[in-house]
Computed example of a mutant assay.
Amino acid sequence: MRELKILAVVVVLTLITYWGVEPFAHSQMHPHVEAPDYTFEDVQADITDVKALTGNAENGAILVQTNCTACHSIEAQGFPQIMDDASSAAAYGVVPPDLGTSGKLYNPDYLAAFIKDPAKASKTSHKFVDGKVHPMPGYGWMQPQEIADMVAYLQSIAPKEMTDKEVFKDACQRCHGIKYGDMKNGTMSAKTPVENIKAYMGKIPPDLSQYIRSRGAEYIHEFVNDPQKHLEGTAMPRVGLTHDAEKQVVSYMEKVGDSKKQEREELGPKFLIYLVIFAIFAWLWKASKWREVH
């Protein structure tokens, strides 16, 4: 009977700690933030005139090729990168992305807002003060139809399917490396040289190999969707990914940084069953010994 009382006390204290102290500590260290917004509600007012129009991909092709290919490549459409990564980074601060997959990766409303005003759409206006300007000029001077045409073109040339790794490379690898993705060959290092990205961002963006373990999938979704929610004033831009593209980024990070997740989750119930069986045998053994004593 004494053992049961001791067990009850331990269980109560454990529950108080787990359900009382731990959630409070977590709420202080990780304050609640709003759920990710994949409609990008804050840019809707800026693109009302664009959304009311139907884009013409053929006209958009001319506009994109005329205004964008001096800095951006579109390899799949025969527009190679004009400068190598080092030269591009030195000129712009960060390697400009290839636009061939942007129509699939990025929310179309975000794309339209980004074309009009990159700093505002990406929530990095606080970086570009005192004469500093975003490396990509805003095209707010364009007619709404022209912006709609550009978005339509980018969507028309985007691939229908992409692997998780391909999505990560196009969405994240310009700034972030994930060295555990290819330790031997180093192909998953950040594309922008360290000295350039440090000058552009203010610090070196972290390698993401283990971020799925240290931060968790929910945090990464919230952070990618809007970094300012968790780290106000951060230099990391809001990326503007669709929900599906963002899930693929997280999926790739899990494959690299938490490859044993499924195996671990499958082992958990088996281990608990083992503990229950072990506890039953331990109790039976104890009962038999006490019967001998008495």
Rank of each mutant, 00 (worst) to 15 (best):
L208R: 02
L231G: 07
K286H: 10
R213I: 11
F223G: 02
F281T: 07
E266H: 10
Q262W: 09
E222V: 11
E254C: 07
L284M: 10
M253G: 08
E265L: 15
A217M: 00
F281R: 03
K247D: 02
W283V: 05
Q262T: 10
K247M: 00
S251R: 11
F278E: 05
Y211M: 15
E218H: 13
M236D: 03
M201F: 14
D207R: 15
R238C: 05
W283H: 13
H243V: 05
S259P: 02
H243Y: 13
Q248Y: 01
G216L: 14
E265F: 06
L284Q: 11
G202C: 06
Q210R: 12
I212L: 04
M236E: 03
V276D: 14
S251C: 06
K255N: 04
I204A: 06
L284T: 04
G233C: 01
S209W: 01
D244W: 06
I273Q: 10
W283K: 12
W285K: 04
A279W: 12
E246I: 01
P205F: 12
N225V: 08
L284K: 12
K260G: 07
Y252C: 07
L241K: 00
L272C: 07
E254N: 06
F223S: 02
K255Y: 00
V239S: 06
V276R: 04
S259M: 07
E254A: 03
V249S: 02
Y252W: 11
V276L: 13
V250L: 09
P269E: 11
Y274W: 10
R238H: 03
V224G: 05
E218P: 04
P237K: 10
R238M: 02
Q248F: 07
P269Y: 05
P205T: 15
I220S: 10
E218V: 11
S251W: 02
G216M: 12
L231D: 12
E232S: 02
Y274K: 07
Y219D: 12
I220Y: 09
D226M: 04
Y219P: 03
D226Y: 09
F271L: 08
F278R: 05
K286R: 14
Q228H: 09
F281M: 15
L231Q: 10
N225P: 09
W283E: 00
T234Q: 13
